[in-house]
């Protein structure tokens, strides 16, 4: 996940290590909060804070220019998933206005060994993803909404993460960029 040197592919960790640490985090939070809704919220918040920092890493690595349409943004998000999680979600279900799309995951590395118990059907196990996307895009002055439309943990065939463009944060755009 992190790099020792500045080369792109220098440091790799086993995906299972991430899966298990994330699992430990979620179970610990379930123990701490008891209320599933609170856990969802906290996971989303953690993701948001991660996204705000991760975006700099992504930009520094890829030297990506600013996106001026949602399709580019979708490609970048796809690319980010490839870099950080080595999964390639497919992009589909565009809304006619091109302001909303889905990321479809055939497999989700975070839920590799996970089965949701009966009493936790409200838990959005991977909501760290949606937080992360929201936080990262907010740093490049795009406000989006992000939620799970389908989840393999809840018996769906695929995991579908929906991203909806809300607005450009005009006043946050740095001078010389607007």
């Amino acid at each position: 996940m992190s790099r020792q040197t500045s080369r792109f592919d220098a440091k790799k960790v086993n995906a299972e290590f991430l899966t298990l640490t994330y699992g430990a985090l979620v179970t610990q939070m379930l123990r701490d909060f008891e209320n599933v809704e609170d856990v969802n919220k906290q996971l989303e918040r953690i993701g948001y804070n991660m996204g705000m920092r991760l975006i700099e890493d992504f930009l520094a690595r890829t030297q990506a220019p600013r996106c001026l349409e949602m399709r580019e943004t979708a490609d970048r998000i796809q690319q980010a998933f490839r870099i950080y999680l080595n999964v390639q979600p497919s992009i589909s279900n565009w809304s006619p206005a091109l302001d909303e799309f889905s990321l479809i995951f055939d497999s989700n590395p975070l839920t590799e060994f996970v089965e949701l118990p009966q009493d936790l059907t409200n838990l959005r196990y991977s909501s760290i993803f949606s937080g992360c996307i929201r936080g990262a895009l907010e740093m490049v002055q795009l406000e989006v909404q992000c939620w799970f439309a389908q989840d393999q943990l809840k018996g769906d065939n695929v995991t579908e993460l929906r991203v909806k463009f809300i607005r450009r944060l005009e006043d946050a755009i740095p001078a010389g960029e607007d």
């Binding site: 992190s2 500045s6 700099e56 890493d57 520094a60 600013r66 740093m139």
Partner: peptide, 30 residues
């Protein structure tokens, strides 16, 4: 793109410092 500015002050007559600035950005991200 996020609005952080990296500034390098160097002697005159040096060519593009893009490379160095990008490296500093990478270090900052890491």
């Amino acid at each position: 793109l996020t609005g952080v500015k990296f500034i390098v002050v160097s002697e005159v007559g040096l060519g593009s410092m893009d490379m160095l600035l990008r490296k500093i950005y990478e270090l900052y991200a890491d």
